[in-house]
Amino acid sequence: MSALISLENITKTYVTGESEFHALKGVDFQLQSGEMVAIMGSSGSGKSTLMNIMGFLDHCTTGRYCFSGRDVSRLKDDELAAIRNQKVGFVFQSFFLLPRLNALQNVMLPLFYRGEEESSAKLKALNILEKVGVRDFITHKPNQLSGGQQQRVAIARALVGNPEVIFADEPTGSLDSKTSHDVMQLLIDLNQQEQRTIVIITHDKEISFMCPRVVTMKDGCVA
């Protein structure tokens, strides 16, 4: 069985003016469908950089990236947008909900960019919101929701397009420990009950203990 994600010798170099910074120095990484992986590592070790490349938000400088057996290292902007829209879902530390849209509209956004009809998009979004436990707040704007609720809405948004993998970059980083635990439990349930593939970046040892597989990064390399 071929891996969902396969990275071979990925490097990422940031050039700022005269100086170059090697954020990733040859990363090899495999992710199977249905896995749940925690990426650990100190701040600045390149975790987000790696995730952004895996999530098609960024290009690697050199190396080979295969997604579902297809080489996606050199795709055009619009192809990347389509993959982001259909194959991956993102959850960010600071939620990144659109402040002017309510919870429901935020969750419908990926479907809107897919060109899905409003009524069916609404139905899907409502189902997902129900599943993540914020069905009662669908007309609330993000600033009317608690951090935990916002993150649940964000998870719903990541899930609504039925992606093949969900990337969560420190999803509990802005939450208190009780809420963190609840949100983590939600992600774990998604993995265990629906076999969702999930990659979580975290600093928290306790959270990493909840994940079946832990990858540690150090100084731009997978340790």
Partner: peptide, 16 residues
């Protein structure tokens, strides 16, 4: 800009 980033992250194309 943040909003644009979010939209791009959920799959908006440049033309969108």
């Amino acid at each position: 800009r943040r909003e644009i980033g979010i939209r791009l992250a959920v799959g908006a194309r440049r033309v969108d």
